[in-house]
């Protein structure tokens, strides 16, 4: 046995190394966005409390101050103040609270409903499939913002109603993706094998088909998250979203657009937070998709 460098490494080692590196990458891509999201979540909970943030409180002497200004009460407005003189940092964090709540709750509700209906449609087919997909078609024919305005004007304002409205306009995407995945999977031999074992519909849908649907659904969920937050902002802008006293990232951005030439920070800074949040969710979703891929896992 000589001390030469390892001769042409066996292919097995190469793939193992590749898998290990891919797995390490996945871990980094999961941990970093989670930390970012965690910081924003903690900030969204803690900061408004610390600042005694009151969205309805106006301080006209302190309005439109640039970032870093020392206010009359001795504090420093790190990110400046907005058009009614409230601290922008506290407002962004309070807004992130609403945006996160709306985004996550909407995704969970529409995701669960959409997945379940998509699984049903794909697995059973026939008239159930036809009926569900026609409903989806009808709904897709309306612009979702129009639908949301319609439903919101019936239900009224409020964070809970916004979540319901956005869930109604979002389940279709999940149902379609899940259904198309099921259609692709249900004729695979392993599904047939489960059937041959005597598995019932429940087992086939949730133990055999569902895991195979998760990867694309997670990717869709991350893109939908951005979509949901933006729709919520648009709705707030149109006056059918969250009520006036509840700041959201979207409403803060829209309020700031009128002052863009004199006070750029009002729109820009919450915009940056929004981008960071979406980016974190996007990367997280992508990494989770890879983690669900068994080819990157090994014993």
């Amino acid at each position: 046995m000589t001390a030469t460098a390892p001769a042409p490494a066996p292919a097995v080692n190469a793939t193992m190394r590749h898998a290990r590196r891919a797995r390490r990458g996945v871990t980094v891509r999961i941990v970093v966005p989670l930390v970012v999201i965690g910081l924003i979540v903690v900030g969204a909970i803690v900061v408004p409390l610390v600042y005694h943030y009151d969205p309805l409180h106006a301080d006209l002497l302190a309005r439109l101050k640039p970032p870093g200004t020392v206010t009359s009460d001795g504090g420093t407005a790190i990110l400046g103040t907005d058009q009614i003189g409230s601290d922008l940092f506290a407002q962004i964090m309070a807004g992130a609270r609403v945006s996160l709540l709306v985004g996550v709750a909407t995704l969970v509700i529409s995701g669960v409903v959409g997945l379940a209906l998509g699984l049903l449609a794909g697995h059973f087919g026939g008239w159930l499939d036809a009926a569900l997909m026609r409903i989806a078609d009808v709904q897709l024919a309306f612009p979702s913002i129009l639908l949301a305005i319609l439903v919101a004007s019936v239900l009224g304002q409020g964070v809970g109603n916004i979540i319901i409205v956005l869930s109604i306009s979002n389940w279709v995407v999940f149902a379609r993706v899940a259904r198309s995945q099921v259609l692709g999977l249900k004729n695979r031999e392993y599904v047939e094998a489960a059937r041959a074992l005597g598995a019932g519909n429940w087992h086939l849908m949730f133990r055999t088909l569902l895991p195979g649907c998760m990867a694309p659904v997670i990717v869709v969920a991350t893109t939908q998250f951005a979509q949901v937050i933006l729709t919520e902002a648009s709705l707030s802008f149109l006056g059918v979203g969250v009520p006036l006293g509840t700041p959201s990232l979207g409403s803060t951005i829209y309020n700031g657009t009128q002052y863009l030439s004199t006070a750029w920070w009002i729109s820009t800074l919450p915009g940056i937070v929004l981008v960071i949040l979406m980016l974190a969710f996007g990367i997280l979703g992508d990494a989770l998709r890879d983690k669900f891929d068994p080819r990157l896992r090994s014993a």
Partner: peptide
């Protein structure tokens, strides 16, 4: 009455471990 399928690459659920694949029948019965 059980079946062994033709394509060993397609007939095993890629998301289950060997243990879970074998135990799947016990989960059903």
């Amino acid at each position: 009455m059980q079946m062994v399928f033709q394509d060993p690459y397609a007939s095993l659920n890629p998301r289950l471990t060997v243990r879970d694949l074998i135990a799947e029948g016990w989960r059903v019965h």
